[in-house]
Simulated scan of single mutants.
Amino acid sequence: MSMKDSKTTGGNGQSVRLPRKRFYRARAHSNPLSDSHFPIPISPSDIDYSPHYPRFFDSKHDEHDKETLMIGMELRDKVTEYVKERILALRASNPGQYDNISVVRTKSMKYLPNYFCKGQLSKMFFLFPHPHFKEKNHRRRVCLCPGSWRPYLYNNTDVEELGDWIKSCMESHPLFIAVSDEELEADPVVPLLSCATEDGQKVARNGGRTFRAVYRRISSGD
């Protein structure tokens, strides 16, 4: 569904209006080093995910019948609000779908360990992050927290210098190796990195290029 759609038809034939992004104006980026006001869990055990995925935490739902759960992390409050309202509208218009996705306002480069235990994540995506061009601001670029996930890390940007910087960081990290071309071709997620986000669609419309970097965390068997 296009991000430009304003309404969709639900399973009961009724029209459900989707939020319009123009009413959620926000700055292009926020300073990740500044203090923001939002709830911060002390540890992953303190998080109640039932409001995010109510269908999967229903007592009547089969505990072993869970899909892969996904959550987006965003620092800007207006963007978080827009995504949250859009998810709720899509759930209402498509019963049984979009129940495994959610969003939370937080500072991922600082509070990621507060949300996830070691080895809890199977994949992480950093798509079109702020490039922070000045060298003195490179510390604002997204920092890694290797213990939180296993085994795949996906990066994509339309800034070549940032793409090279990400690759250099990953290549020099002892816990990661680049995913082979054969694996990338077989991965159904890879084609979506450049076209499934609003930023990616904007780059495509403008005829721009994207610079992908996909790495796998080294296991004890490697």
Rank of each mutant, 00 (worst) to 15 (best):
T106H: 06
H138K: 05
R25E: 10
R212A: 07
F126V: 12
F23Q: 13
Y98D: 04
Y215I: 07
L88F: 11
P188H: 04
P39M: 02
R217P: 09
L90S: 04
D164N: 14
K123Y: 08
T9S: 10
E67P: 01
I40G: 09
R150L: 06
Y53S: 02
H138M: 08
N31S: 09
C117I: 05
P146R: 06
S219L: 10
C117Q: 12
S93V: 07
P41H: 14
L192S: 13
G13P: 10
Y82K: 01
Q201W: 01
K202W: 11
Y154V: 06
N137R: 11
N100G: 01
V103A: 06
V104W: 01
D58K: 05
L18N: 09
P151I: 00
D181P: 06
T68K: 06
P39I: 02
E198N: 10
R91M: 02
F128C: 11
S194C: 09
V16A: 00
W149N: 03
N100D: 14
R212T: 14
L33H: 13
D65K: 13
S43C: 10
P54E: 11
P113I: 01
G11P: 03
S220T: 14
I71C: 10
Y111R: 01
M70Y: 13
E74K: 04
D48H: 09
H61P: 05
N31G: 11
Y82S: 07
S36M: 13
M109H: 02
D46M: 02
V203F: 05
S93K: 06
P113R: 05
D164V: 15
F56A: 02
E63N: 07
A89C: 01
F176E: 07
H29P: 03
Y82M: 00
G96I: 05
G72S: 13
K110T: 09
G221F: 11
S36I: 13
D77I: 13
G147L: 03
G163Y: 01
Y111S: 04
S168M: 03
S148G: 00
Y53H: 06
E160Y: 06
R76C: 06
F126P: 00
D187H: 03
K136W: 03
V190Y: 07
M170S: 02
R27S: 15
R209A: 15
H130R: 11
S59T: 15
F176S: 14
G72F: 09
R205Y: 05
A186Q: 08
L127D: 01
I71F: 05
L175T: 15
R139D: 12
I40Q: 08
T9V: 15
F57R: 08
I71S: 00
R216I: 01
C169W: 06
P113N: 03
N155T: 13
C117A: 15
R150C: 14
N31Q: 03
F57V: 10
H61I: 02
K107V: 12
E198Y: 14
M109K: 05
R217K: 14
D62P: 10
L75S: 02
K60R: 11
L33S: 15
P174A: 05
V142H: 09
K66T: 13
S194L: 03
V190K: 08
D5N: 15
H52W: 04
W149R: 09
F128N: 05
C117R: 11
L88H: 05
L162F: 12
H29Y: 15
N94E: 07
P51T: 03
K7W: 10
F56R: 01
F116A: 04
G11D: 12
T157L: 00
F211W: 08
T157E: 00
E171N: 12
H52P: 01
D199H: 12
A196E: 13
N31L: 04
P129K: 10
